[in-house]
């Protein structure tokens, strides 16, 4: 569903809308931190049995890093038989809390059919989530998916946006993919006002979150004119409740949520900066539990 028209005057134009913040890792005080450092020390000394027991206990309290490390132990067969499927389960458990290293590993396993069936679309979603936390390898790999159209629509400008982020984050290989400024999409000249709306990916409609921030992910088909995305997140899904509004060249952003919880919604405009034509995606409602 989309509406074409002119960009509202109230929409602020700002820079690249990727906010980087630390992922919530389930750290809850010094006693917990001490237990975690004991577990990591045991792991580093190769005492996998003791490390595993400690990580299991921490993971039960919701510690995402402990779940992630249990994933690595199953992935490599440290203290347990190697089991990629079990590793994927642990990585995923950590990833759903917004823990970026686990999000990246979930993406890689879906991408390379290790432990799970190959699913490029889901891999792209998890790369995008990790990318919003500043994981530059995720940005690079997502650029590759948008270049080849695996799991996402083939979209050269979006691939370029991801490669630029990866390159600025210290992935030199991304530079080889970056085209000279001013390179235009392959086809041009289609009447304005016909921009395609984005496809929302995450959070899905009516998702309930208990998080400090939310990774917002969408995909977009190639357009016939250069476009940018304008992400809006609002309390109650109305312009009056806006808590975030910014331009984004890539296809994901991390948005910090106000304390207190409530009903929110997000939507993405597809905007042509040259003509100010735009297309609006539908509001995607989600709720945040108070914390």
């Amino acid at each position: 569903m989309s509406i074409a028209g002119r960009l509202p005057a109230g929409a602020a134009i700002a820079g690249l809308g990727l906010a980087f913040a630390l992922a919530g890792t389930g750290l809850v005080g010094t006693a917990h931190a001490g237990r975690r450092s004991d577990a990591i020390a045991a792991y580093d000394h190769g005492d996998y049995g003791s490390a595993r027991t400690r990580f299991l206990s921490l993971a039960r309290t919701g510690d995402a890093d402990a779940a992630y490390r249990l994933g690595i132990m199953s992935d490599l067969g440290q203290g347990v038989p190697e089991d990629a499927t079990e590793a994927f389960r642990w990585y995923r458990r950590a990833a759903v809390t917004g823990y970026a290293p686990a999000e990246f590993n979930v993406a890689v396993m879906l991408d390379s059919h290790r432990g799970v069936p190959h699913d490029a679309a889901q891999a792209a979603e998890w790369y995008a989530r990790a990318a919003t936390h500043g994981n530059h390898r995720a940005q690079y790999n997502l650029g590759l998916l948008y270049s080849s159209g695996e799991g996402v629509p083939r979209n050269r400008p979006v691939a370029q946006a991801w490669f630029r982020l990866a390159e600025s984050g210290g992935i030199p290989a991304a530079a080889e993919h970056i085209e000279a400024a001013g390179t235009r999409p392959e086809t041009r000249g289609v009447a304005s006002g016909r921009l395609h709306a984005v496809t929302p990916v995450a959070p899905k409609a009516d998702t309930a979150l208990s998080r400090r921030e939310v990774e917002i992910v969408w995909t977009a088909p190639a357009q016939t004119v250069p476009v940018r995305f304008f992400l809006q997140v609002a309390h109650g899904g109305s312009d009056h409740g806006e808590i975030y509004a910014d331009y984004v060249d890539s296809t994901a952003a991390l948005v910090r949520l106000p304390a207190g919880g409530g009903a929110y919604a997000w939507r993405v405009y597809t905007v042509s900066p040259t003509t100010a034509d735009y297309s609006i995606g539908a509001w995607i409602p989600f709720t945040v539990r108070p914390r």
Partner: peptide, 18 residues
């Protein structure tokens, strides 16, 4: 070979001392 290197990039998981 660039494609092969990119493939390797999409196989190597973070944090793993592989």
């Amino acid at each position: 070979d660039v494609a092969l290197l990119d493939k390797a990039s999409r196989l190597y998981r973070d944090g793993n001392p592989i």
